[in-house]
Design a protein around this nucleic acid. Structure first.
Lengths: 145, 145
DNA sequence: GTGTATGCAAAACATTTGCAGGATG
DNA sequence: CATCCTGCAAATGTTTTGCATACAC
């Protein structure tokens, strides 16, 4: 997790202007638990910053992705963003469908996968979805399936 | 891979009408090698069937997904479809970035993944992207990276 | 013939872009 | 005060929906 200050410093170092919108965005993602869709971001930011426009959200999401602060992932429901993982070693994620919180998986299935020699692997994706302890309990209380 | 005839029979059995558009769609997917986006489908079908509309493509993609004939997968570039895998046992895919052709991976990483007892796994995704023999050779000839 | 599927048009939604005014460094 | 960023509006792309007509059964 990168802190708000680190993000602001990085933006500044790259010659980008530190506007209120960007500060709000940096604060949101530095504190956010899971993945956020552009709409989530717009809604959350709207609370702090009224008169915000959607295009600024998109623009800044892209800026922060190019900065390396955010990472974009495609889910069934669409694009989502979160703070770029800091773990220096390769890893995957368990993702809670309730709160969106992620947990690292150190194990990489590529080590175990028998790839034919004539298939040139470029990238891979391994994600586990489910409910974390808190969200699983909540499900149970509500009698969800 | 399901054959054209099987798809048509299934549609008919479910009380769906076997229209030219649906036949063309069934033929396209029964012969298609990899994943197709709605636009791909529209373009391919347009060749056989002029005066086709986009909404019919979408409607029928959804119909055939509900039928269990097609499966939908979300990629970075958007939604794509392919014939539903027939393999009766659980498996994953290697997907060629060139031609979209898929190859089954029998190995499932979930067996090896150490999931904490308080995380309730619901589903998982494991995909390997790369180039198949033919597409890798083509890349090389063209001097691609 | 009856009812479903299609095509058209328009709506709904997501994302991008041009431009003038405003804020940042 | 020069430039970059923002907000507005409009454009673009994708997917959905309403409705009259056409087609499958």
């Amino acid at each position: 997790m990168q802190t708000f200050d680190e993000i602001v410093t990085l933006m500044s170092a790259r010659g980008l202007r530190v506007t209120d919108q960007r500060k709000t965005l940096a604060k949101l993602f530095s504190e956010a638990i899971g993945y956020l869709s552009p709409k989530d971001v717009y809604d959350h930011m709207g609370k702090t910053y009224s008169g915000l426009s959607f295009d600024t959200v998109y623009r800044n999401l892209r800026v922060m992705e190019e900065l390396g602060v955010l990472e974009q992932v495609m889910f069934e429901e669409g694009v989502k963003f979160k703070i770029h993982c800091r773990e220096n070693d390769h890893h995957h994620h368990m993702i809670c469908l309730g709160c969106g919180k992620t947990y690292p998986i150190k194990f990489c299935p590529m080590d175990q996968t028998n790839v034919p020699t004539d298939f040139k692997v470029i990238r891979h994706k391994f994600e586990v979805f489910g409910h974390c302890k808190a969200c699983a309990e909540e499900e149970q209380v509500q009698g969800g399936e």
